[in-house]
Amino acid sequence: MPPYAQSLMASGLKIDWAKMPTYNTIMSVAAGAGLLLVVALGRQLLTRGRIATPDGWALAFGALGFTLVVTGLHMTLTWPLAGQGFPFDNIIFGEPALAFGVFLLSASFYLWKRAAEFAVEDGIERTSRVALPISVFVFGMGLACFGIAAAGWKYTLFAAPPEEPISGEFANYPWLEASFMSGLYVLVGIGALLFPFALRTPRTWMSPTIGVVWGLAGLAFLIFGGLNYFTHIGLIVNTM
């Protein structure tokens, strides 16, 4: 267990929540929904060759992208979690959320502007060509996900304090939640590293592999984020 966690457990955790706004709950839900929708859209392109109701996808990506950009940008630039002993969480949650939000907003804008083009049968080829330049950034964020996962395992950064409901029951086993959260970042990272290569040959094993790893990670982030609305509220009540 890292020293900061030992000291918190020994002294009893008290947090001045007025100095630490925490909103990684909605970030997790939005990121999970975004990953699931990206997988669903990719599957539609691969199976049908076109996108049904692209304006609906544009609205969905726009809503999720806006949520992630606003929260991720604020966390990245202001480090709201630093004042109470969790500065690393600003990097872990803020920067990936910001990057993913930008990706989703970009996709939303493109789908909105070019909706008619996706009614044709070569949608997968067109999408692959358009997404290829941004895939370099996606690849880089995949490397970042592996870095976050490695840090999470080495320093058990995701360990919940005893005051947090449910997750706090495993406070004496910090490696457990660290392994779970780091594993999710590994799944996202695998898909991101494969993404540029899958765009070049979209109808190979890489596309379904990306679908599986991003689908699993998206579902986990969505459920875990929803659960955190209870656990984080409980943590606030127990540490005021």
Rank of each mutant, 00 (worst) to 15 (best):
M141Q: 10
W112S: 13
Y173E: 13
R129E: 09
P162W: 04
G152D: 13
M141K: 04
V120G: 09
Y110S: 01
F180L: 15
A151V: 07
A178E: 02
E117P: 00
L132N: 02
W153P: 01
E164G: 00
G123C: 06
P162K: 11
L184T: 04
Y110Q: 05
N172T: 14
I124E: 01
A160W: 03
A119R: 13
E177L: 15
G123M: 05
V136I: 15
V130Q: 05
G123V: 05
S128V: 03
A159Y: 05
W112V: 00
A144V: 14
A131I: 00
P133E: 06
P162Q: 11
P161T: 07
L132M: 14
W153H: 10
G152R: 06
L184C: 15
W153F: 15
S179G: 14
K113E: 05
G147A: 10
F180T: 02
E121T: 14
W175G: 03
L157K: 08
D122W: 03
I166N: 06
C145P: 02
T127D: 00
I148N: 06
V136T: 14
F146V: 08
Y110E: 02
A178H: 03
Y173C: 00
A159N: 12
T127A: 14
N172S: 14
Y155R: 11
F118H: 04
A159R: 06
K154S: 11
L143E: 00
A116Y: 02
V138I: 15
L184D: 04
F180R: 10
G142Q: 10
F158Q: 08
I134G: 04
E125F: 09
L132A: 13
K154C: 00
K113S: 05
K154G: 00
V130W: 12
Y110I: 02
L111M: 12
P133Q: 09
L132Q: 12
L157Q: 12
L184I: 12
Y173F: 12
F137Q: 04
P162C: 02
E164H: 01
V130L: 11
Y173M: 12
W175M: 12
E163V: 01
V186M: 10
G142A: 11
F170S: 12
M181T: 07
V120Q: 13
P161I: 09
P161K: 08
F170H: 11
S179M: 12
L157S: 11
A171L: 07
C145I: 02
Y155K: 10
L143D: 00
I134T: 10
L111K: 05
P165S: 08
M181Q: 11
L187K: 07
P162D: 07
G183I: 04
F137L: 15
V138H: 02
K113T: 11
R129Y: 03
A115F: 03
T127R: 01
Y110R: 03
R114T: 06
L157N: 09
F158C: 04
M141I: 10
S128K: 04
K113C: 00
C145G: 15
S182M: 09
A151G: 10
A160K: 03
W153Q: 11
A159V: 10
I124S: 03
S128Y: 02
G123W: 05
M141T: 10
